[in-house]
């Protein structure tokens, strides 16, 4: 049994009827109507609880929660530059460890949580995140992926999917929008051989909260990739946030899985996948795509799904029951 499986063996999970009442993130924050990112952050904070130190990279979630002289945080919170949230959280963790050892403080169960958007994680903060995961600090990192730099006005990032319209990848006669594929950051995190990696979506809130809690319980680095719908940047109605997030999972665009001690496990099997065209049609950032482009995207989504299912292979097969050594 790996260290992650060992830490999780008594974990029961949350249920919709008995959610924690506590809200470490207060209302009155300035997120757009129907923001899926702050919803994801709210659920993660609910799951982790109040014994936490939060490090925030620059991004939407920093802007909307902390315009001076107010703060929406009820827990210790640090805002640092775009690139170094993971570096700072590892420093905080090391400081707590040293102070605990010297008897200055007594809080062995504090959770260290850092988050950034897709720009702050995939582009600018990747090196710091990689370093922190490699050093093996006990922290949780969540990438709140809304697929572009939304707070500065929808510029493309390496998280922007193929074909999406942003202000720096505008579609036109000679362009189809974003011309490169989305970076697969969960796979990069898995390659660091850390104990826990998971993808989650606010459309499946109990799953998201369970994953956040698991990430917090596991000793060592844990990485969460959270699909964060952005009505403003993706150009759909504010009330469709959860519908779009559900479609992304049901059309296999954003599969939900977790990787515990290097073993892939699908969290949600998609029995009757919806066509990717349904997902694309729900958002105006994809409206310029022709049928041949949609077919290309569908083929890529199917290929990625097959790769993922193959990686989950051990769990999909009925046999051999794995017992601890």
């Amino acid at each position: 049994m790996g260290i992650a499986a060992e830490a999780l063996k008594d974990f029961k999970g949350f249920s919709l009827k008995k959610l924690p009442v506590e809200e470490p993130l207060s209302p009155g924050h300035r997120a757009c109507q129907g923001c899926g990112e702050v919803l994801a952050l709210r659920l993660i904070m609910k799951a982790i609880g109040s014994n936490v130190v939060v490090c925030s990279a620059t991004g939407c979630m920093e802007i909307i929660t902390s315009p001076y002289p107010q703060t929406a945080w009820r827990v210790p919170w640090l805002h640092v530059a775009f690139e170094n949230a993971a570096a700072v959280v590892s420093g905080v963790e090391a400081a707590y460890k040293a102070m605990n050892r010297k008897g200055i403080i007594d809080s062995p169960d504090t959770v260290f949580f850092a988050y950034g958007g897709d720009g702050g994680t995939m582009d600018i903060g990747l090196q710091a995140l990689s370093g922190a995961m490699e050093r093996g600090h006990n922290f949780v990192y969540a990438c709140l992926d809304n697929e572009a730099y939304m707070n500065t006005g929808i510029q493309r990032s390496s998280g922007t999917p193929y074909g999406a319209m942003t202000t720096t990848s505008p579609p036109g006669k000679k362009s189809i929008g974003q011309s490169t594929q989305k970076k697969n950051l969960p796979a990069i995190a898995v390659a660091h051989a850390i104990p826990y990696v998971a993808t989650a979506s606010p459309a499946f809130p109990v799953d998201l909260m369970n994953k956040a809690k698991k990430a917090a319980m596991i000793p060592g680095p844990a990485y969460l990739h959270v699909y964060s719908v952005c009505p403003t940047g993706w150009r759909h109605a504010a009330d469709q946030t959860i519908q779009v997030a559900k479609l992304a999972v049901d059309s296999k665009v954003f599969p939900l899985y977790e990787v515990i001690d290097g073993e892939y496990k699908l969290s949600r099997k998609v029995a009757k996948p919806k066509p990717v065209a349904d997902y694309l049609k729900a958002q105006r950032r994809f409206r310029h795509l022709t049928e041949s482009e949609v077919a290309k995207i569908q083929a890529k989504v199917d290929a990625d799904w097959d790769t993922l299912v193959k990686r989950c292979g051990a769990e999909e097969a009925p046999a051999p029951a794995k017992e601890d050594e």
């Binding site: 207060s26 209302p27 009155g28 924050h29 300035r30 929660t65 001076y68 002289p69 107010q70 703060t71 929406a72 945080w73 009820r74 827990v75």
Partner: peptide
């Protein structure tokens, strides 16, 4: 919020009340 003197700020521009965004009527 928005109209006060710098003399009213706490030392180091600290915010002493957690979750004070709750005052904002969104």
């Amino acid at each position: 919020v928005g109209s006060f003197s710098w003399k009213e700020l706490e030392l180091g521009c600290a915010l002493l009340e957690p979750g004070s965004a709750g005052q904002l009527k969104t």
